[in-house]
Design a protein around this nucleic acid. Structure first.
Lengths: 139, 139
DNA sequence: ATGTACCGTTGTAGTAGTGCAACTAATGAA
DNA sequence: TTCATTAGTTGCACTACTACAACGGTACAT
């Protein structure tokens, strides 16, 4: 049954990501901040967002996002500026220091498990191809 | 560079598991308990553990594990019994009601994303084979 | 202009989880 | 026996996060 295979694959992927290679604590220790702040920083790395949009991406509400952003701003990692077209909104953008921190986070979180690095190149390519398809599919 | 491929694959897997298909909230709502309790239940499903061992598996300390287990016991989902050989220790085991709850959690967490179910059977098999190898490798 | 809706902020209250200290009971070694 | 160690528990203090209410400033349609 291919549903069983899918279930086994899914369990396997979850196990790899969530149990064997959870780097949450490591990255929080390295950056000296809570995980939601790391997440915010990574979300802002590609480009500025309004606070509201950031809140959505963080799956939290605006009030808490204000606190997170204020803290990151205090650390000099992000900046808040009024939105040029909508003066109600503010755009939150990452600073050079923030980029450095975000890159460190990416390096820690993105470091592939050794098993993945040790994988046979053909297997790795197969994995790469299929994962790309999964990501391309909407959900 | 195969390291780049590995990094891309790893990022993809993390994205799938952590961003696109995070079921934490869903399972907590369904079971009416915090995620660490769900985790404890799932850890106890295969067989009893001492409280200390459970604490290790939960990556938390003994005092908090006591609280979690006491709460699960109040709900009738686990039981505490004195260890037959070491009267300092207690063995925590899951009840039939606990098994039912754990199965529900497994069903929610283990439900593969639709993209995985829609995958070409050959791709799915390839994925299955490689994931199995990754899991077989220690880390 | 006016009513409605939206954005960010402040505040408040509650839950979840972490970390540490101290205690009892039990084990095991000297 | 005595002593160090371990298992579980209780308690406390703290951080992180969630959820909601309310407010001022702004946008926009009518």
């Amino acid at each position: 049954m291919s549903e069983d295979v899918a279930a086994r694959v899914w369990r396997g992927m979850r196990g790899l990501v969530l149990e064997r290679h959870e780097r949450r604590k490591e990255v929080c220790d390295a950056l000296g901040m809570s995980f939601i702040r790391v997440k915010a920083l990574r979300l802002l790395a590609p480009g500025p967002l309004t606070l509201r949009r950031l809140a959505e991406r963080l799956a939290t509400d605006a009030p808490y996002t204000t606190i997170v952003v204020a803290d990151l701003e205090r650390r000099g990692l992000v900046e808040r500026a009024p939105h040029p077209e909508d003066r109600r909104a503010k755009i939150v953008s990452i600073t050079p220091e923030g980029v450095t921190a975000a890159e460190l986070a990416e390096r820690i979180l993105g470091e592939p498990p050794s098993a993945l690095l040790a994988l046979d190149p053909a297997d790795l390519d197969a994995l790469d191809r299929v994962i790309a398809r999964l990501l391309a599919a909407g959900s």
